[in-house]
């Protein structure tokens, strides 16, 4: 019956909580509420706000460009999540299976966690450049016309590779930790039963570390939707022909290239609801898996 809640001075508690509450209210909650309000206006910079009711939402609903952006975002985030996790799982398993020098490999693999996405974008823009990229001539020698400034699907893939590259390290951090916690006895049992390495990974480890995997799905989804903004901005500016125009970039462009703040706010609100639903769904999912993982 022990408790940590030994301090009971409510005033003190309030004072200590004040900074967090004030910053949260002013810079997190209030702007969110404000976004909802602003979404009913035609608002710009230095030109006055005009109430337009649901016009912005109507425009959203009928904009094929926005619909495309939604689809691109979902596709992109899905590819990021799947790509990152598949690669990271293989890499983590590889490191897990190595007996000597694990620590060195780990650091050598997880460092892109610290890599600024803007740097990732610029470096990839440079090395994958259709004209001056270092590998361009080799890839073109294979018969592929590297032309991702004009070719949408190619641009999508290049940004995707950059995004995956940057995020694998973060995933490896969690996956190696989770693999390290798998009881040795299970590995030994599997080995005695003659289970192959791949089978051991898929049949034994993956189910055991599934809570970690669910957590990573959430983090990677958020990354896929928002964290990749610098790469898109620096590599493709959403193009060509909207092929990489993910929602966050579209939102940025509406707000800070076109100064359509009201319309942008409506996009924010939609994004907020989407994030909320997504998180809710995934938390439900992780709840279910929590039992599995014990």
């Amino acid at each position: 019956m022990s408790t940590r809640e030994v301090f009971t001075d409510h005033l003190q508690a309030g004072v200590l909580l004040l900074p967090t509450m004030v910053v949260s209210l002013v810079f997190l909650y209030y702007p969110t509420v404000r976004a909802v309000g602003l979404s009913f206006y035609r608002a710009s910079l230095a030109q006055g706000d005009v109430f337009v009711g649901l016009d912005n939402y109507r425009r959203l609903a009928t904009s094929s460009e926005y619909l495309q952006s939604v689809l691109i975002s979902v596709l992109f985030a899905t590819c990021v999540v799947v790509g990152v996790m598949a690669v990271a799982l293989c890499v983590s398993f590889l490191i897990h299976e190595i007996t000597v020098g694990k620590g060195v490999y780990l650091v050598a693999v997880i460092w892109p966690y610290a890599l600024p996405p803007a740097v990732a974008g610029l470096v990839f823009l440079f090395i994958a450049h259709p004209n001056i990229g270092i590998f361009t001539s080799y890839i073109e020698a294979l018969g592929v016309d590297v032309n991702w400034f004009s070719h949408g699907p190619q641009a999508f893939v290049v940004v995707l590779i950059a995004a995956v590259w940057k995020q694998v390290g973060y995933n490896v951090i969690f996956m190696t930790a989770a693999l390290g916690n798998v009881p040795e006895s299970l590995t030994e049992t599997a080995e005695l039963d003659g289970v192959s390495r791949t089978q051991r990974l898929l049949r034994v480890y993956v189910p055991i570390i599934s809570p970690t995997l669910v957590f990573l799905v959430i983090m990677n989804t958020i990354y896929g939707f928002f964290g990749t903004f610098p790469m898109v901005d620096l590599m493709t500016k959403g193009g060509p022909a909207g092929a990489t125009n993910i929602l966050i970039y579209d939102l940025y462009r509406t707000a800070f290239q076109f100064y359509e703040f009201g319309f942008a706010s409506a996009k924010s609100v939609v994004l907020f609801i989407a994030v909320g639903l997504l998180m809710y769904g995934q938390f439900r999912l992780s709840d279910r898996y929590a039992y599995y993982g014990g």
């Binding site: 004209n131 032309n147 400034f149 004009s150 493709t236 500016k237 193009g239 060509p240």
Partner: peptide, 9 residues
């Protein structure tokens, strides 16, 4: 094609 607004490229 050097890209959209890609003066430098």
């Amino acid at each position: 094609n050097p890209g959209i607004e890609a003066w430098g490229e």
